[in-house]
Design a protein around this nucleic acid. Structure first.
Lengths: 194, 194, 194, 194
DNA sequence: AATGAATGAGCCTTCATTCAT
DNA sequence: TATGAATGAAGGCTCATTCAT
């Protein structure tokens, strides 16, 4: 990759970060191209040099975060740990992201309302991959006799749902610190699987 | 209440129902006054006779559903049941609403993005009241020794969060029927409290 | 048709007329919704109450004029006249429209550059119908031995092309009056068919 | 002319050719600087090294083609032929260009919509020169008694108009080949002058 | 009570043009 | 010379809101 390309890639990432910020603040629907550009002291026109339209920008935004999360989880999955330990750590990682990337993350309840056909498919695919890691951990746990659960998919849904909801109420100035919260969630949500 | 007023009240409710439908279909942000009116074979102008603006309409919509839910829960709370039983039933009621009123319910993650100051306060108040019933059930359970839990608020958040997420993925044509789903959720989420 | 509908229909026509004016002045591509609205002391937003988008407006505009022209020609065709006389009169009618409706008429050389698939088809259809009347006159003339021509389609193209071009250079303040011009064109273009 | 200048001149011509292509494909208004540059594997910024703005580029484009056409006609005019023969050949040359240079040629019905004052004058001048050759042929024919016509200017307009219109409907895959078409047009349009 | 009509602000997008490198 | 990047103005479209009737 040439210097130029690197620079452009970096700029793209900056834009995505800016977009994430704005989305986190205002939500997908309220995030305007103007806002996103202003955050970077650019004009909205410039964004179109990097992304072909708003949807693509939003999509890439969503994708980036999901990819980062995936990486962390994949890594975790390969470690030599008990399923319990893995699940607890996975929950913490997930919460980490949910808290950090308020709104940009998994939480677009209804991608249909934001993305068009073409991207929806990809969004769902990515999500399934992501959730798949949790499924694999559960499978592992069940195989090893660590977890006792019949409704594996639903258990995963409960865990992720509970964690996602944190994004709605958590505030760094609230009663609980992030680490404390993660600890507690990991502990209690695990019970679902036991 | 005069006949006039009764009629108006009835119409208001019709509008709210229509709005709920549209919101369920398209989401808060995508629900236009036009859509809502069309559903009732009215014109959007007429809506302003009953509600002073879109926000009020949406707010009342949200309020209505929350109130209905409250009623069912209050009733339940007063019944003579074990805390476990109450919690399981409460979860089922909650899921019932979540599934039925996809999107209109609790699930506005960020009311700030939809409502203005004045209404946000009221929204949060209502929500707290609603969640309060779950808290009371938990308190009861702890008092009676049925539940063992230190982080009561968080436990409630987990339960409601997990249940709310159902709204994202549940489809009546999916693998699980509504009753079956409720049964499973009630069973596993209860474990958090044990 | 109710009074309301009549009024709306009238407004639609007014808009089309305004659009025709603007198109005539600035061309299809340069005609902005703003311009069209301003002509009627409206705001551009209002136009969307009557037409779903710019293309539809332009299309209807084109259609209206073509329809009016068709009517005049159809009528003419049914009169009891020699083919020569009919053709001369048809040429005059055509010139009349070309001059009056500078630009809005037949003359969108390349509808593909203005209309989308759906409308292009209809445009071409209408045009063919229109040109068809000239073809029928030519056929009649040939059948009666008034015209001697092998390449009927091409002859029609020549006649209409020559007439259409008038729109490019004709000015009411120029050397020739409209009637005079029509007379001359009718006379000379007829020669092509003899 | 230095080597530098020669190179630049060559490049300019390449750009004009590319522009002609794009214009032919998309029309004047739809031809973007980007398109024109892309055709040459350049970036649009570079175009401004050779032309001060889009209008100049378009103007030069138009001029180039008109000049080429002029040359061919001038040559033809000087040949020792009857006026009839000359006119027929001139029509063929004109059609040749019309067909080849679809859209870039004479056919900008309304230069006012594309060019600004300064260039419009020059465009009209060039056009008049071009049309002037046809006028001279007609004059010659009338002088020699080959043509009988009072309205010389109009006759010229008819001939050129009819020929220009070919550009609208002609397709190389259509019923007629180019040569055949030219033959027919030359034959029939001549009749106007007889 | 309800409607048709109009408005205006806001947003996305395109594109000619500029400029530092 | 050429390019990548950025800009700003303009235009199309949507939609909540208003208002006379």
């Amino acid at each position: 990759m040439s210097l130029r390309e690197k620079k452009a890639a970096k700029k793209k990432e900056e834009i995505l970060r800016s977009a994430s910020l704005v989305i986190a603040r205002n939500g997908y629907k309220n995030a305007t191209m103007e806002d996103i550009a202003a955050e970077l002291l650019m004009t909205k026109g410039s964004l179109y040099y990097y992304f072909k339209n708003k949807e693509e920008l939003l999509y890439k935004c969503h994708e980036l975060i999901l990819s980062c999360a995936m990486e962390r989880l994949e890594e975790l999955f390969l470690e030599n740990l008990s399923a319990r330990e893995k699940m607890q750590r996975a929950i913490k990682v997930h919460l980490d992201i949910v808290i950090q990337e308020k709104e940009v993350f998994n939480l677009i309840g209804k991608p249909e309302q934001i993305f068009s056909e073409e991207n929806i498919v990809k969004v769902f695919q990515k999500r399934d991959e992501y959730a798949g890691i949790f499924d694999r951990i559960i499978d592992e746990g069940v195989a090893r006799g660590e977890f006792i659960i019949d409704q594996k998919k639903m258990a995963r849904m409960m865990i992720l749902g509970a964690a996602n909801w944190v994004q709605v109420w958590y505030s760094s100035e609230g009663q609980y610190g992030k680490d404390e919260l993660e600890e507690i969630y990991a502990k209690y949500l695990l019970k679902i699987l036991l």
